[in-house]
Design a protein around this nucleic acid. Structure first.
Length: 452
RNA sequence: GCGGCUAUAGUUCAGUUGGUUAGAACGCCUGAUUGUGGUUCAGGAGGUCGUGGGUUCGAGCCCCACUAGCCGCCCCA
C-alpha cells in the first residue's frame, strides 16, 4: 500500500545539495550581521495566539496558522477563542517585540539582534512563496536615530553584494510622507489605507490602473489625478529632486516635513547608490510607523527583502513604548533567484568528502577502517565504502558523489605497507607510503583553495 | 480566496478524429573490463497514463469531481 509521499502543501524537504546552498547563503548573512554588531536570538515556533492577532492587519490575520487546543474533546460549535489558543509564528518581528517587552531589563539599552528561523503563513504557494519559509531578520531596538536605518541598509546591501547581486534596488519611502501626500490632496482618513493599496501597485498596473482602483474604491478622482501627476513628475528623477518635489507637494504639513528630512538623512548616512526613493511604496503590514524599505531585483515580481521602522509595536504589549527598526531578508526568494541565475560557487558541489576508502575484500575490512581512522585524525573527511563490491563499482560511486580522492588498499598495497591514491578530478594515481597519504590529499586541497 | 493552464517511466517530454501489446532522449542496472569512475559499445529493468467516478463495443485521449503543480489577481519574504 503506497501512501502519498509529498510533503504538506507549501512545505519542502531539503536534499543535501539544497541544504548546502541554504547554509552557504545563511553563513554570509550571519557573517555580515555579526560584523555590524548584531547578536543572535531564537524564539519558539509557537506563540500565544493573542500575541500575534491584530499586528498584521486584516489580510495577515487570516494567514496565521492556528493550533487547536489539546486534551479534552473539541466541541466544534465552540467559538474560535475556545478552539485555539496558540499559533505558529507569522514573522520574526512581533516575537522580537514580545521578547523586548518581556526582557527589557536584561537587554542592553540598544539591542541589536539578528534571527534566522522559519515562519509559517497559510498563503497560496507560488514561485518563491511557501507556507513554511525562512526569514533572516535584523533589528535595532531602542534608538530613533536615522543612523539605525542607514546601517541596516548598508548591511543588507553588503550581504547582497557578497552573494553576487549587482542589480538590486533598495526602495525607500516613509509612512508619514504617504499620509501627508494623501492629506495634501484631501483624501479622508477612512480612505487613506485603500488609497495606499492602490498607489502601491503603480509600477505594476500603471497610472490608468491606479485610476480604476481609485474609482472602484470610491476615492475622488481629482485627488487621484493630482497624485498621478506628482508621480509622473518624480519618474526618472534623482533622489534629491524627488525630495524637493515631495516637500513642495506636501507643503508645511508638519510630520511630513520631518519625514522628508529623515529620508534625506538616511540617504546621506548610508551613501548607497542602490538606495532610491519611491513615493508610491506603501507596504502592507500595519505596524510600520516611519521609514519603509523594499528590496527588488528585476527577475522576481515580489521583493527579496523588506523592512521599516515600527516605533509603536513594542508598546502594544502594554509596557513601555520603545523605538525600533528592522529588515527582513527572504531567504527563499534570494535562493530562487540565485538558483535560476546559477550564482552558487562551484565548491559547494564538490563537497561530500575528501577521500573514499575502498574495501578490497572481506579480510581487509579491518585495515581499511583503520586507515580511514588515521586519515580522519589528520582532519580529512573520509567515507568508507560499505561493501566489498568490485572496485569498478566503488569507483563509480566515488565519482557519483564527487569525492576528491579514492584510496585503494589492496593485496599489493597491504604487502608493502603502501596505499594507492587516485585523484578523481585529474585522474592521476600514485602508490605511496601509507603515512604519506594524508599529506598528499591535503596538498591537493590547498592547491584547490589557492586556485579559487 | 478568485480566474486560466497543466498532470504519461527516476527526469524532460512524444503519443494521429477515441481503436491491438503506450514510445524517445537522458538517467538507472548488467556485461565488454576478475585492481579503477567520468568516454564508447552491447543488453536489461522500469508505467494500474495524478486519484475517483462517468460516456463508449472500446478511453492516455471525451465529460465531471478531487488532488498536486505552473501563470495571473489579492496579498506577501
Amino acid at each position: 500500500m503506497s501512501q502519498n509521499t509529498n510533503p504538506a502543501r507549501g512545505m519542502r524537504d531539503f536534499l543535501p545539495a539544497q541544504v548546502r546552498r541554504r547554509e552557504y547563503v545563511i553563513s554570509i548573512i550571519k557573517e555580515v550581521y555579526e560584523s555590524y554588531g548584531f547578536e543572535p536570538l531564537e524564539t519558539p515556533a509557537v506563540e500565544n495566539l493573542e500575541t500575534l492577532t491584530g499586528k498584521y492587519g486584516e489580510e495577515g490575520n487570516q494567514l496565521i496558522y492556528k493550533i487547536l487546543k489539546r486534551g479534552e474533546k473539541l466541541n466544534p460549535n465552540a467559538s474560535e477563542k475556545d478552539l485555539s489558543d496558540l499559533a505558529l509564528r507569522y514573522d520574526l518581528t512581533v516575537p522580537l517585540a514580545r521578547v523586548v517587552a518581556q526582557h527589557k531589563n536584561d537587554l542592553p539599552k540598544f539591542f541589536k539582534r539578528y534571527q534566522i528561523q522559519p515562519v509559517w503563513r497559510a498563503d497560496r504557494p507560488a514561485r518563491g512563496r511557501y507556507r513554511e519559509f525562512y526569514q533572516c531578520d535584523v533589528d535595532a531596538i531602542g534608538s530613533s536615530s536615522m543612523i539605525v536605518e542607514a546601517e541596516l541598509c548598508a548591511a543588507v546591501s553588503e550581504i547582497l553584494v557578497r552573494l553576487g547581486f549587482n542589480d538590486f534596488v533598495i526602495r525607500i519611502n516613509h509612512r508619514e510622507i504617504l499620509y501627508a501626500m494623501l492629506d495634501a490632496v484631501e483624501i479622508v482618513e477612512e480612505k487613506q489605507i485603500d488609497a495606499l493599496v492602490a498607489l502601491d501597485k503603480l509600477d505594476k498596473i500603471g497610472g490608468e490602473g491606479v485610476l480604476k482602483e481609485f474609482e472602484s474604491r470610491e476615492i475622488n478622482e481629482g485627488a487621484a489625478n493630482k497624485l498621478l501627476g506628482l508621480f509622473e513628475k518624480l519618474k526618472n528623477s534623482d533622489n534629491s529632486h524627488i525630495l524637493e518635489s515631495l516637500s513642495e507637494f506636501i507643503g508645511n504639513y508638519k510630520t511630513g516635513t520631518q519625514a522628508t528630512s529623515q529620508i534625506s538623512q538616511i540617504l546621506k548616512l548610508a551613501g548607497l547608490k542602490s538606495l532610491k526613493i519611491d513615493a508610491s511604496l506603501a507596504r502592507g503590514l500595519s505596524y510600520y510607523t516611519g521609514a519603509i524599505f523594499e528590496v527588488n531585483v528585476p527577475d522576481l515580481s515580489g521583493s527579496i527583502a523588506s523592512g521599516g521602522r515600527y516605533d509603536g509595536l513594542i508598546g502594544m504589549f502594554g509596557k513601555e513604548q520603545i523605538p525600533a527598526c528592522g529588515f527582513s531578508l527572504g531567504l527563499e526568494r534570494i535562493l530562487v533567484v540565485m538558483e535560476e541565475r546559477g550564482m552558487f560557487p562551484k565548491e559547494l558541489e564538490t563537497n561530500s568528502a575528501d577521500v573514499l576508502m575502498t574495501i578490497w575484500n572481506e579480510e581487509s575490512i579491518g585495515e581499511s577502517l583503520k586507515l580511514a581512522g588515521e586519515l580522519r585524525q589528520e582532519n580529512l573527511r573520509v567515507l568508507v565504502y560499505p561493501e566489498a563490491d568490485k572496485l569498478g563499482k566503488q569507483f563509480k560511486y566515488a565519482s557519483q558523489i564527487n569525492v576528491l580522492f579514492v584510496c585503494v588498499l589492496g593485496e599489493n598495497e597491504l604487502a608493502e605497507n603502501k596505499v594507492t591514491l587516485k585523484n578523481m578530478q585529474t585522474g592521476d594515481q600514485e602508490t605511496i607510503n601509507r603515512d604519506e597519504a594524508a599529506v598528499s590529499v591535503k596538498t591537493y586541497k590547498k592547491y584547490l583553495q589557492s586556485k579559487s
